[in-house]
Design a protein around this nucleic acid. Structure first.
Ligand SMILES: [Zn+2]
Ligand SMILES: [Zn+2]
Ligand SMILES: [Zn+2]
Ligand SMILES: [Zn+2]
Lengths: 181, 181
DNA sequence: GCTTGATATGTTATACCATAACACTTATCA
DNA sequence: TGATAAGTGTTATGGTATAACATATCAAGC
């Protein structure tokens, strides 16, 4: 189970601090080599693209690194801000194009509930993600949705609907906030 | 299984016609008394509010009627347009407040994937909705998500996460578009 | 009735999210 | 090396949602 925080959404998390690796709150990797974990994910993405003849361009790579580095769900404009600071782009389409690519390749996921993006916790391996979103602190975790996906796919088949993708997003209380309440 | 169409979203359904009851496409109620079905849902909402001391105000009632009448997923601004035409409100908060109320009471659902709202197909009875969204024609159906919800709730419990609400939204091909393909 | 607090509405302004469109560059391959 | 596809830079705009504050309405107790 991976925990991320999101930085800038409407409510109730506008004022949420933006924890980094080793920071407060729901960071899961309290004592791992985050630099190495970023490198591993980027390397995996690189190999994936190389094998398929896709262009893992500097911009796309950098956006993935930013998502991995933040280790939390981020809005497209959060990412754009980082890119701008680094001179890698200044207009929304720059961020959205890179994010579209990363999502299409499975290196990142979009969380519809909060209009945010998060690096995949599984290095692009085939999987069915579900997201657990804390309504108090806005931390986000990626969980396995295999059984739930199977259930909804079966239900849909009964209605003649052919499922291609499933978004499962649960809202509730993360362990920390549940304990505080 | 209930089918709705949505009227104004980004892609790929910008140009989608806005089917009404008895109209084309995925309307389920091809031969029922839609006027009566609207009345029944409104009456149920009225009773629900009366029992709880909630104010089922004319605005809220009218927004529910609009959703029921359209019999499809609608954006907040679609609804606002209707309200404006009828002299019942002209600014975004008017629509959003009514929608927030309806969603909170279970009379309507929000579909995150397409930023749209739809009248509940079960007159507010306790249930776990999942939505099936056709990526070609943007039709939307409400299905039962009980087993899937159970699965994801169990998975979350394993992570110490306490689930309160689950949004399950499947994207794929509706029967009609699957057949056409 | 009148006060009072809670709830709902009217309105302005603004913030936030996402894409269309077009010019230009870079990569790929025959 | 010319043709084609893919990626990037940039401007402008469209679509979604809320903050904030003034006003009105409702419900309950005095
Ligand atoms: Zn993932
Ligand atoms: Zn939390
Ligand atoms: Zn009907
Ligand atoms: Zn369809």
């Amino acid at each position: 189970m991976l925990w991320y925080n999101i930085s800038s959404i409407h409510t109730p998390c506008r004022d949420t601090a933006t924890p980094r690796h080793g920071g407060p709150a729901h960071a899961r990797f309290q004592s791992h080599d985050h630099r190495a974990c970023i490198a591993a994910a980027v390397t995996a993405a690189d190999a994936h693209c190389r094998a398929r003849g896709l262009h893992f361009t500097p911009q796309r790579r950098r956006v993935l690194e930013i998502l991995l580095d933040g280790h939390r769900a981020m809005g497209a404009y959060d990412i754009l801000e980082r890119l701008r600071d680094e001179g890698l782009g200044s207009q929304p389409p720059v961020a959205y194009r890179a994010l579209d690519f990363l999502v299409a390749q499975g290196f990142a996921h979009k969380i519809e509930r909060i209009n945010a993006f998060v690096a995949c916790a599984h290095s692009g391996a085939e999987h069915d993600p579900a997201f657990l979103i804390c309504r108090v602190c806005c931390a986000v975790a990626e969980a396995e949705a295999g059984p739930a996906r199977t259930a909804i796919t079966a239900a849909a088949r009964g209605a003649g609907f052919r499922v291609e993708r499933v978004a499962i997003e649960a809202e509730g209380l993360c362990p920390r906030c549940a304990e505080a309440a």
